[in-house]
Amino acid sequence: MSSNDNEVWGSPEAGTRKGSGMENVIEVQGLAKSFGHREALRGIDFEIPRGSVFGVIGPNGAGKTTAMRCLLDIIRPTAGQVRVLGTDPRRAGPAIRRRIGYLPGELALERRITGRRMMAHFAAISGPVAPGRIEELASRLGLELDRQSRKLSKGNKQKLGLVQAFMHDPELLILDEPTSGLDPLMQREFLGMVEDARGRGQTLFLSSHMIGEIEQAADRVAILRDGLIVRTATVEELRAGARRRLRVVAATDPETLAGALEPLPGLELLDTKRLGEGAGALEARFAGEVGALLHALAGVEVLDLVLEEPDLEEAVLELYGSPPGNGRHRAGEPRP
Rank of each mutant, 00 (worst) to 15 (best):
S52H: 07
A62S: 05
G266L: 02
P323D: 00
V8D: 05
E189T: 15
G51W: 01
L246V: 01
L185R: 15
E177L: 11
E23D: 03
K159W: 10
A14F: 14
F205P: 00
A258I: 09
R244I: 06
S11F: 14
K18R: 15
G43M: 08
R225V: 14
I48N: 12
R285V: 06
H329I: 05
R83H: 13
G155P: 05
L185M: 14
R99K: 09
E110V: 15
A123S: 15
P104S: 07
E106F: 06
L41G: 04
A123L: 13
R91P: 04
L71K: 05
G291R: 11
P265E: 06
D183K: 11
Q148R: 15
A197V: 08
V316D: 06
S11W: 15
R239S: 13
D45R: 03
L191V: 04
E171N: 05
H295S: 13
P59M: 07
Q164R: 14
V249R: 08
G201C: 13
L204K: 01
A222M: 04
R76L: 00
R274N: 07
S149M: 15
R133Y: 01
S52F: 04
P334R: 00
F122K: 10
I96H: 13
E215Q: 03
L269N: 07
M118N: 11
A217C: 12
L145W: 08
V221G: 12
G43W: 09
V230S: 09
D176G: 05
S207P: 01
L319W: 02
R330I: 11
A242M: 02
L71M: 07
V230N: 01
D271Y: 07
A40R: 07
L182E: 04
V84L: 04
G288A: 05
T114P: 00
A130R: 14
P131V: 03
I229M: 12
N326Q: 08
R50G: 07
E314Y: 05
I214T: 12
E277P: 10
E289Q: 12
C70E: 08
R116K: 03
L152T: 10
A40Y: 08
S208D: 11
L294T: 05
E177T: 01
D88W: 12
A218S: 08
E7L: 14
S208K: 03
I26W: 05
V129S: 11
G212P: 00
E289D: 07
P104W: 01
R83E: 10
G161V: 09
L137K: 09
T234F: 05
E27A: 14
G332C: 06
M119E: 06
V8R: 05
D146F: 06
G21R: 01
R200A: 11
K33H: 00
E177V: 01
E333D: 10
P94F: 02
E213C: 10
I57F: 10
G266Y: 09
A242D: 03
K154T: 11
G36V: 03
Q187D: 13
A120S: 08
I229T: 07
L137G: 02
R38H: 14
V84R: 13
L293N: 10
F286T: 03
P263Y: 02
A124C: 00
I75Q: 13
F122R: 06
A331E: 06
